[in-house]
């Protein structure tokens, strides 16, 4: 398993558990929109950022906690990777 895909599976599992209870995991793809669809609301975004910071030991800047960086698993992992 590559570094990136392992980060993605960790984030995916967190999002499924926290914000998509009961969802079929295969439906959450790397390009599923999360912020623009309301799956991640303001509070969920804050929780996700806290999770990313603690799990990957990174600092997410306030301006990065937005739709551009957090809208899909793909962009979230790009953000995480850019910090490590």
């Amino acid at each position: 398993m590559t570094h990136e895909s392992s980060a993605m599976s960790i984030v995916k599992e967190f999002i499924l558990d926290e914000f998509l209870p009961g969802e079929e995991p295969s439906r959450l793809t790397p390009t599923t929109a999360l912020v623009s669809t309301g799956i991640l609301d303001s509070l969920a975004t804050l929780k996700l950022v806290t999770f990313l910071e603690q799990t990957f030991d990174i600092q997410v800047k306030a301006h990065e906690a937005d739709e551009e960086h957090l809208n899909t698993l793909h962009t979230i992992c790009e953000l995480v990777d850019s910090k490590r």
């Binding site: 998509l20 009961g22 969802e23 439906r27 959450l28 929109a33 669809t37 309301g38 799956i39």
Partner: peptide, 11 residues
């Protein structure tokens, strides 16, 4: 129904 599908449809 899928939560992802419903939320995406609504959006």
């Amino acid at each position: 129904l899928s939560l992802i599908e419903m939320k995406t449809f609504c959006s």
